[in-house]
Design a protein around this nucleic acid. Structure first.
Lengths: 235, 235
DNA sequence: GAGGAATTCAAACAGCCGTTTCAATCAACT
DNA sequence: AGTTGATTGAAACGGCTGTTTGAATTCCTC
C-alpha cells in the first residue's frame, strides 16, 4: 500500500516508517561516529531521508536531538542486554564470570560494535546533561550487582570501599579494550589479538585474574598451576 | 626591558616571547579542552595574544597546528616524567609498584591534570595521524618495560602473551580513573574519593591486586591478611 | 469530497568557521 | 639612513553551520 514515492533520493541509510525514529537512528550513528560538534544536521537528515527542517519540527534543536539520541541508545542497549539473573544456588565465582562475560559482550559486542555503545562511551568520557541519567538508570544497578557478587566471592571478608575498588579494577580492565582498542591493537601482535582477545577469552582472563587476586582461585604464576584457561569449550 | 606594548588587548593567557610557542601552548589547551572540531583558531589566537593570520604563517593550517600540538605535549610530558630506572638489585615487586605509581602520577597528575594528558587521551580514544608516532615513541617503551618487570615478578613462569594481557589489566585499571573519572566519581561516595582515590592509594591498590593475582603477595581476601594498605605514609 | 490540522519541502537567513589578502610595521645589515 | 626581508595587523572572502520561513503537500475527520 505505502506509496513508494521517495524513490531514488540519495541514500536513505535508515529504515522504518516513523520519521522521528529514522532521525533518531541516523543521529545516533552520526553522533557516535563524528561527535557532537562534527556531526551535521544536514548529514543526519540525508541519512534519515528527511528534510533538514524535520529536526527542528520533531526535536526543537540540535542539542535536544543529541540528548534524545543518547537516551534512545541507552534504552535500546538495556533491552538488548538485560541485567543477568541467576538461580539461587549458582556459585559466586561463576556468577562473577557471567557478569564479566556479560559486561565485555555488552562493551565489545559480537560482530562490529554497535553505534549505541560508542555514543554512550562519548558520554562517559566527556559527560553532558544526558550522563547523570545514564549513570543512575543504567550503570549504578550494574555496579551494585557487581559489588554484591564480589562480596559473595570473598565471603564478606572485605569492607565495602575495598569491594568498590576491586569492582573498578574489573571495569577498568574491560573498559580499556573498548576505549583504547586501537592502541591495544598497536601494542599487541595482530595474530594474538585475533586469537586471544575475543570477548570470551578476555572474560576468562579478567575473571581468573580477579579471582586469583581475591584468593578464590590459584594465582596465575603458581608453579603447580595447569596451562591456562578456565572454560573448557574450545569449540 | 621588554617593551610592554601589547598592553590591554584582552586576555593573553599564555606567557613567553616566541609567538610560535605561545600559539602552541594556547592551542594545546584549547584542543585538549574542546576537541579538534570545537576549538577555533580565533579563540586560540586570542588566548595566545597573536593575530589569526599567525597560525597560517607559522603552521600552515589548523590540522598541522593540531599535529604539532600533540607532538609538543608529548615531548613536554616525556621530559616531565621520564621512564623510571632502578638499581640492579631492586626487588621486582617494588619495581612494579614504582612503575604503577609512576604511571598513575603521569596519568592523574599531582594537582589539576595538565592539558597535555587530556590531549594525548583524545588521541588514544580516537587516533589521528599523530597517534602512531605517539605509540611508537612514547608508549611502546613504557609497555615493554612493564612487561619485562612483570616477567621478573613471576620469575619467567608465564608466556609473553599472558604477560601482555596482565600488563593490559594493569594499564586498564589505571586508565579507568583517567578516562572515566567523572563516572567513577558518581558511583563512589565523595569522601571515599578524597580519602582513598589519591594516586598513591590507587597505586598501592593496583599493585597489591596484581601481585596477589600473580601469586607474589597474599590474596586480598585471605582470612589472615592485615587490614589493607601497603605503604605506611598517611602524611 | 471539503475543511483543517499535521507534516514536508525548497529556499533563504544570519552567523561563525578556516583561510587569504595586502598593506603596515619591525629588525637587521650595508 | 635606506633597503631588504621577516613579521604583524585589520579586513575581507567563500563556505558551511544551525535555524527559520512560508508555501505546498499529505493525512485525517466530518
Amino acid at each position: 500500500m505505502a506509496t513508494a514515492r521517495q524513490a531514488t533520493v540519495s541514500a536513505p541509510v535508515v529504515t522504518g516508517d516513523d520519521p522521528r525514529d529514522r532521525i533518531l537512528a541516523a543521529a545516533g550513528q552520526e553522533f557516535a561516529e563524528r561527535g557532537y560538534e562534527a556531526a551535521t544536521i544536514r548529514d543526519i537528515c540525508l541519512a534519515a531521508g528527511v528534510n533538514v527542517a524535520a529536526v527542528n519540527y520533531y526535536f526543537g534543536d540540535k542539542r535536544r536531538l543529541y540528548i534524545e539520541s543518547v537516551k534512545h541508545a541507552h534504552e535500546l542497549r538495556v533491552k538488548q542486554v538485560p541485567l543477568p539473573e541467576w538461580p539461587r544456588d549458582r556459585p559466586a565465582a561463576e556468577r562473577l564470570h557471567d557478569f564479566i562475560d556479560n559486561l565485555l559482550e555488552r562493551m565489545l559486542g559480537f560482530g562490529q560494535p554497535p553505534w549505541q555503545v560508542r555514543l554512550m562511551l562519548r558520554e562517559v568520557l566527556q559527560p553532558t546533561d544526558a550522563c547523570r541519567e545514564l549513570v543512575e538508570d543504567y550503570m549504578r544497578p550494574h555496579f551494585a550487582l557487581l559489588v554484591s557478587t564480589l562480596d559473595d566471592v570473598c565471603e564478606r571478608r572485605l569492607p565495602q570501599h575495598e569491594l568498590r575498588r576491586v569492582a573498578m579494577s574489573i571495569i577498568g580492565q574491560c573498559f580499556l579494550y573498548r576505549a583504547a582498542g586501537d592502541v591495544v591493537g598497536m601494542l599487541v601482535p595482530r595474530d594474538e589479538i585475533e586469537s586471544l582477545h575475543t570477548p570470551t577469552q578476555l572474560a576468562d582472563h579478567v575473571t581468573r585474574f580477579t579471582l586469583a587476586a581475591l584468593g578464590a582461585a590459584p594465582p596465575l604464576a603458581s608453579p603447580a598451576s595447569p596451562p591456562s584457561s578456565i572454560s573448557r569449550t574450545p569449540r
